[in-house]
Design a protein around this nucleic acid. Structure first.
Length: 234
RNA sequence: GUUUCAUGUCU
């Protein structure tokens, strides 16, 4: 089973989900890890419905679910956008005693964000004791997506006050917040801060964010400058 | 041996 789960994972990473599935089917005995690998494979490749189906099967087979199962299935709920189902999984998590597991909590916050429930996301976020960068990033991205640039910026400050360093994900999240609200100056400032104060080099995602930010505002001249700067980087 | 977060296009 150990070899099989590694094999399934490899097929999944190669995006060959059919082959992953047939290896899975050929197994006479399946443990929780193999199930988890398959659920995660579907969830990670945007096959939310298949992940949910697999999750259902898994439960019918009486497999004891763990933190790996829950975090993957929450991702699937988020990508499909099924809030009720996600909330149901939330209850299961509480019953199973996994509600204090950081990764599961982060997955819960993200699920609520992706299902459009900022309220529940926020409530869940507040219950997280030891927030890590992912916890903060998820919430910042959630506010960004919903057009709350002010809150996104506030959380950006708060995360640092809580001794959590912003990373690449944090910056792309905050930059999109400014794009959606047309705050060009702020975006430019954060991009600078990213290198100057945080020692992070903007990657392709950040450059795309900036092109988007400036483009939306009609600053085509600046976009050209940006393209020049970035071609010098490589 | 398995899990959670970021840009745009499309779904």
């Amino acid at each position: 089973v150990v070899v099989a789960s590694a094999l399934i994972e490899m097929y999944a990473k190669c995006e060959n989900l059919d082959e992953a599935n047939s290896v899975f089917d050929s197994l006479p005995q399946k443990d929780v890890v193999v199930w988890n690998v398959l659920v995660a494979a579907y969830a990670q490749h945007g096959k939310g419905y298949l992940a949910l189906k697999c999750f259902e099967n898994m439960q019918q087979h009486g497999v004891l679910l763990d933190q790996f199962t829950y975090s993957s299935i929450l991702k699937a709920c988020g990508s499909v956008g099924v809030l009720e189902q996600g909330a149901q999984v939330h209850e299961q998590i509480v019953d199973a005693g996994y509600q204090s597991h950081v990764i599961v909590q982060n997955a819960l916050v993200d699920m609520y964000v992706k299902c459009g429930s900022l309220n529940e996301a926020c409530k869940t976020f507040d219950r997280v004791k030891n927030r890590d960068a992912v916890t903060w990033n998820t919430m910042i991205a959630g506010y960004a997506e919903h057009g709350f640039a002010g809150l996104a910026a506030q959380y950006f400050q708060e995360m640092q006050a809580n001794a959590i360093r912003p990373n690449e994900m944090t910056f792309s999240a905050i930059l999109t917040a400014f794009t959606y609200t047309g705050l060009v100056e702020e975006g430019v400032q954060y991009l600078k801060d990213m290198e100057v104060f945080h020692g992070l080099k903007p990657n392709i995602v950040h450059i795309n964010c900036m092109i988007d930010l400036l483009g939306h505002a009609g600053c085509f001249y600046d976009v050209e400058d940006l393209l020049k700067i970035t071609s010098d980087l490589d």
